[in-house]
Amino acid sequence: MWFHPVFLLRITHSQDILRRYFVVNGFDGALTMLGLLIGFMVSPPTQLSVVIGVCLGAAIALGMSGISSAYVSESAERKRALKQLEGAMIADLSDSAHGRAARWVPLFTALVNGAAPVLMSLLILFPLWLADAGLPLPLPPLTSAAGIALLLVFLLGVYLGHIAGVSWLRSGIQTLLLAVATAGLIFWFVGGGDG
Score class of each variant (00 low, 15 high):
G66R: 04
G87I: 09
R103T: 03
V112C: 09
I173G: 08
L56A: 12
T175S: 15
F187P: 06
L107N: 04
T109P: 01
V50I: 13
S49N: 15
N25S: 00
A97I: 03
D194I: 09
T32N: 03
P5T: 07
V166W: 13
L156C: 05
P5G: 09
T32G: 01
V51A: 11
A110Q: 04
W104L: 14
V112I: 14
A181E: 08
S96L: 06
F154C: 10
A102R: 01
L48Y: 06
A146K: 07
L130W: 03
A183E: 02
V166G: 10
L177A: 14
S14I: 01
W129E: 07
G63M: 13
R80M: 04
G35K: 10
L107D: 03
A76N: 13
G29T: 07
P45R: 10
R78W: 00
L82Y: 02
G193W: 04
I38A: 11
L82M: 03
S121T: 13
L139W: 12
L128M: 08
A164L: 13
H162F: 13
L37R: 04
I38R: 11
I90D: 10
V166D: 10
V180C: 08
G165D: 14
I148F: 12
W104Q: 12
A58T: 01
V54T: 06
V118W: 01
Q15Y: 12
S14L: 00
A149T: 09
L34M: 14
S171T: 05
S73A: 15
Y21T: 15
D28C: 03
F22R: 03
G114W: 04
Q15T: 10
K79H: 04
M89L: 15
W168L: 09
P45S: 11
V118T: 04
G193M: 01
A58F: 02
A76W: 05
G184K: 06
A81G: 01
I52F: 05
M1S: 12
G53I: 02
V166R: 15
P44V: 01
F187W: 14
V51E: 11
A181T: 14
V51I: 15
L185E: 00
G57F: 07
T109W: 00
T32I: 02
G161L: 03
F22T: 02
L185C: 06
K83W: 02
L37T: 06
M64N: 01
L62N: 01
D16L: 05
I124A: 09
L156Y: 13
V23P: 00
R103P: 00
P5Q: 04
L151P: 12
L137I: 11
I163A: 10
G26A: 09
L176I: 08
G114C: 05
D92M: 06
S65A: 12
L56V: 15
L151I: 15
I148C: 11
R170F: 12
D28Y: 02
G192H: 10
V180D: 03
S68H: 05
F189G: 13
I11P: 00
G26Y: 09
I186V: 10
G26H: 09
A30G: 12
F22G: 02
G165C: 14
S75I: 02
T109M: 04
P138M: 14
A181K: 10
G39C: 07
I17Q: 05
H98G: 00
S49K: 14
I52C: 05
V24E: 11
A97P: 01
V158N: 10
F108S: 07
D194K: 13
R103E: 07
M41I: 07
Q174N: 07
G165I: 15
A61N: 01
L56P: 11
L142P: 06
R19F: 15
F108Y: 15
